[in-house]
Amino acid sequence: MSDLGHDISDIRDSYDAVAEEYATRLHEELAGKPLDRALLSCLLEQTGPGGTIADLGCGPGHVAAWLTGNGAHTVGIDLSAGMVETGRRRFPEVEFRQGDLRELPAKDGEFASAVAFYSIIHLHPDDLPRAFEEMRRTLCPAGLLLLSFHMGEEIRHMGEWWGQQVNLDFRFLAPARIAALLEAAGFAVEMRMERTCYPDEAETRRCYFLARRLPRDPA
């Protein structure tokens, strides 16, 4: 373990290995996800003009690019240098930063809102509270977080992905636990939605939360 918590070098290295193929295959992913687009549009509307939206665990940046194309200033943050490099090349209109969800490269209150689509699913459960605290830290007062994950209790391990050797655990998460962790970190969950998978997705049930950053109670 590092000072941050559990070692995540395998996550970084695995996504480095598949970055270009991932970007190629998922470049138009949102075109086939109407509910995701609707939720992103809702986030855009509530963010308002001038606010910066963070895409946390952005991968090659296709979600950040969609937000930018619809009028947002967006910052994509990903652990993988390969993903960040690929994103910068494909989407020069998006600002990219390399960083860890548990120690985000951002100032306090920098973001008006944030998206974290399936980016917490590789973290060890013990690291989730710190990641949520970081999300709260980097959001402005009353800022919104749109979060998604696979529902359940299983762990699916992947050792090979698109012809590349990887070492990734995909952790399914219980919505009640995630809601409790968000609330403990200083968020109020305003919306919860579940959906089944689209035809081209992995066969999992997915959960979405929209949570708002609350002020801390005075000591």
Rank of each mutant, 00 (worst) to 15 (best):
L123C: 02
A114M: 07
A176S: 12
D108K: 12
R37E: 09
C140N: 06
R37M: 09
L210Y: 02
D100N: 09
R88Q: 14
T204Y: 13
K33Q: 15
R130H: 05
G50S: 08
E29A: 14
A180C: 07
L35A: 13
A64S: 07
R90E: 07
Y15R: 04
Y198P: 01
M83A: 09
N167I: 01
T47K: 00
S148C: 08
D78Y: 06
T138K: 01
A188C: 09
V18D: 03
V75C: 11
A114G: 07
A185C: 11
D7Y: 06
E203S: 14
A54T: 01
D36R: 04
H122N: 10
Y198Q: 14
P34N: 10
S41M: 08
T68A: 15
M191T: 15
E153F: 04
D217V: 11
L173I: 05
S80M: 06
E203C: 10
G186T: 09
L30M: 06
L67V: 07
A64V: 04
I178C: 10
C58H: 01
T86C: 12
F111D: 00
R37S: 04
N70Y: 07
V115W: 00
D36M: 06
F117K: 04
S80R: 05
A81C: 05
A184S: 14
A131I: 01
S14D: 03
L39F: 08
R156F: 13
H124I: 02
Y15F: 15
F187Y: 02
G109E: 02
R192C: 05
G163E: 12
A142N: 13
I11N: 00
I178H: 02
D7G: 09
I11T: 09
E21P: 00
A31G: 14
P215I: 09
A72I: 10
A116V: 03
F209K: 01
G76M: 04
L39T: 04
A174Y: 02
Q165D: 11
A180V: 04
D127Y: 04
M193E: 14
R12C: 06
V94S: 03
L139P: 00
V166R: 07
P92R: 10
S80C: 05
E133V: 13
E29V: 11
A64N: 01
G159Q: 10
F117C: 03
A106T: 06
P125R: 08
A179Q: 14
A176L: 07
L214P: 02
A188I: 09
E153C: 06
T47H: 03
A64P: 00
R156Q: 13
